[in-house]
Amino acid sequence: MTRLTRNTLPLLALLSGCAAPLSQAAVSLDRTRVIFPGGEKSVSLGISNQNAQLPYLAQAWIENEHAEKITSPLVVLPPIQRLEAGATSQIKIQGLPELSLLAQDRESLFYFNLREIPPRSDKPNTLQIALQTRVKLFYRPAAIAAKTGANQTPWQEALTLTRQGDRYLANNPTPYFVTLIDATKTLESASASDFKPLMIAPKAQVDLGVSAKALGDKPVLTYVNDYGGRPQLQFHCSADTCTAKPVTSQRCPSSHDVLT
């Protein structure tokens, strides 16, 4: 029996009436990113077996930002479990004391992996495909966690752009990671052809990867929030510096967005 593994990121959220793309995976996760708040001992994730006829094994693990499998400072419990046909279950991400060794003034990046293992086929020469979901896992220290019930401005709105020649540099002054998935010249225009989704680390600066001419003097960037939503920011430039304002309407996610 041969098993092939390929990555997929199922988009599960329904955003303002937008239909989410369907995943081919039998075992699916209930979110597109994981936030582990500082001060919490664990976080529980929901998983389900979308196959109505067959049981599957669900294997889970965590990787660091270098795609290396780790067992500290976060660990997955249980690392493997059986899901009956159509069943749901939970996976716990447990924090260990080593979390205190991470930076406490900004987020740290990990990756949560969930692989489905199909039942062994009793038919000869059968090709079985095991799909794997990989999503970003952010450890968010208590010092920078949002206060419960507080109506806070999304930190992504603090992004600024700096024009250098024919390039835009995106500046992230916040202690949070920011994922950008689209860049356009106007609210109505198509995506800049050379733009590729990128993530800006806390207190970091990156080149958007497209010419300033392609984005004009009122660039529109789309980011991913904690809930998988895709809000937009329109930038207004004065000289070589551009500041962001939120766009009230929300765009529907495309299949291109699913891999972020």
Rank of each mutant, 00 (worst) to 15 (best):
C242Y: 04
P246C: 00
F195A: 04
K203A: 09
D182S: 15
A244Q: 02
L233Y: 07
K185E: 01
K185H: 01
V206D: 14
N225P: 02
K203C: 09
E188P: 02
T186L: 07
Q250P: 01
L198N: 09
K245I: 08
A244V: 02
A244H: 00
T243P: 08
A183V: 12
S254M: 08
D217E: 09
S191M: 06
K185R: 11
A183E: 13
D240L: 08
V220I: 09
R251N: 12
R230Q: 12
G228Y: 01
R230I: 12
A183L: 15
Q205I: 12
S255G: 11
F195K: 00
L233C: 02
T243G: 14
D194L: 15
S238A: 13
L187S: 11
L208Q: 04
Y223A: 05
V258C: 13
V210T: 10
V224S: 04
L187K: 14
G209Y: 13
M199I: 15
L215N: 06
F195E: 01
A192N: 08
D257Q: 10
D257V: 00
V210R: 05
V206A: 13
L208V: 04
C252I: 03
D257G: 09
Q234H: 07
S189A: 04
V247Q: 00
Q250C: 04
S191R: 10
C252S: 01
L259D: 14
D217T: 03
P197K: 07
P197S: 11
K245C: 07
S254R: 09
Q205Y: 02
D207F: 07
V220A: 08
R230S: 11
H236C: 08
C252D: 05
N225D: 14
P197E: 05
V206Q: 15
Q234W: 06
